[in-house]
Write a protein that binds this DNA or RNA. Structure first.
Lengths: 251, 251
DNA sequence: CGACTTTTTGAGTCTAGTCAAAACATGTGG
DNA sequence: CCACATGTTTTGACTAGACTCAAAAAGTCG
């Protein structure tokens, strides 16, 4: 049976994207800022710089001095931690108007993870100092930021729980559902995860190995839960995947 | 060879402890509030209520409506998540002037973990509404809270990394070091972890089982890295434990 | 069409989990 | 103060899920 070719359709990152006008829209749409008056947003906008990065480029490294806060204007960015033994751990995948960078390190002075472009990206950056000034000037923004960080903490704790208590199969199912929720797009009767990501990435997300992920994905495909190929996955049966996460076996 | 009996000396929780005067001291010492003028602190203090809880009592449950923020005035509290399969996951152990409760759920409406008294405790509680008012009234406090939550996020991500990439042995070593850093007290040439915690708890912290933890601890004891007994642990060789975490084997 | 990367498959091994039972602490009441 | 009841820890034997190493198959891109 011939497998479908890659159905991914990634947004083209063109230079226009980071135009002043577009940036205003992005920044004005962020949960952090969207309640502010246009005037304030335009003042804040002036503090941001844009930057294009291409796939696999590192935006910053774990251990670097935490000098900037970033926003994803276009494309996807992954956050990873490196281990002595060599295999990386994938903490999160960001897109849309997600933030990353010095925010997660308040109180610390260095980045605690490495940021890698998963696709060609356009990102906006602001210096930590400028961002802290914004926080001082607009208390509401601090409040929104707090909510965003709290949410990430809760998510991280959920991952801790899963790594502690779930089998690899359950963790993979759960990771797929999480990605689908974030990046999924309807495709026929399935949900395509709009992100080029390899077995390697999925292994790094679930604390496993490429070989094991491959075996589990094959099993899922046999059971009609997913379709997948080189760097893409479509979820065909969300409900049964959810049951699998809860109950721990394919029924 | 006779093992040493429990060397734990826990603070006695007497009713006096939550006296108004003592509460003022606790609240005034919190990173969140300590920069505020005495007057503001006394106003904030009036919004807190104290509560005694005894060992193993639940302070709130995962899924309950998140109505309060808590401070640990005396004693230790653990935060756990329950899993369908029954074994709990221990997310954090709190003491001193740590906060817990509705803080980690900003934006959410329910507690995402269960809080259990690890010892007899005295805790202070404030309603979420009152706390939000404080945040509105004192922007600096919001800022401090943001830093605290960020720190916990970073810690949680470290745990994710360890669960993903470390062996059980490394995770246990790392958990012991973390606890020692937080709750350790010098005892002869070792560091006693001032917390009554069982193999069960250590298993729940490291995503393992009591039996495996027991075996690993026996190995550690043989190698002179720790001494331990029923519900207590003393670390005898911090340095070699640290090397073990990094390199992954007892040298 | 090749060269390269990613994915799959296979065989063997080992870490850590499970189940069961014994040994050991701790606290209680006689 | 000792003996017993209870909960915790240790030990043993067995099993299995997941890792490692190695090589073949399948996509992808110039």
């Amino acid at each position: 049976m011939p497998r479908p070719k890659s159905p991914l359709r990634l947004d083209w990152v063109d230079p226009e994207v980071c135009s002043l006008e577009y940036r205003l829209k992005i920044i004005g749409r962020l949960p952090f800022f969207k309640h502010l008056p246009a005037e304030a947003i335009s003042k804040i906008n002036a503090l941001f710089h844009d930057r294009d990065v291409s796939t696999d480029e590192r935006i910053y490294f774990e251990g670097d001095e935490a000098g900037h806060l970033y926003l994803v204007a276009m494309g996807k960015v992954k956050l990873v931690r490196n281990t002595a033994s060599g295999h990386d751990v994938l903490l999160d995948i960001l897109h849309g108007e997600d933030y990353f960078g010095s925010l997660s390190t308040f109180g610390g002075r260095v980045y605690t993870e490495t940021a890698v472009a998963q696709t060609d990206c356009c990102i906006l950056q602001i210096s930590s100092a400028d961002f802290e000034n914004i926080l001082s000037d607009y208390p509401d923004v601090t409040r929104k930021v707090l909510e965003a960080v709290s949410k990430r903490l809760t998510e991280s704790q959920e991952v801790v729980k899963q790594l502690s208590a779930y089998t690899v199969e359950q963790r993979i199912a759960s990771a797929l559902l999480r990605l689908a929720g974030k990046l999924g797009e309807a495709r026929g009767r399935g949900v395509l995860i709009q992100l080029p990501f390899s077995r390697q990435d999925l292994a790094a997300m679930t604390g496993s190995t490429t070989e094991t992920v491959s075996r589990v994905m094959s099993r899922f495909a046999e059971d009609g839960l997913v379709k997948s190929g080189r760097k893409w996955v479509t979820i065909m049966d969300t409900q049964r995947l959810e049951e699998l996460v809860k109950k721990g076996a394919v029924n």
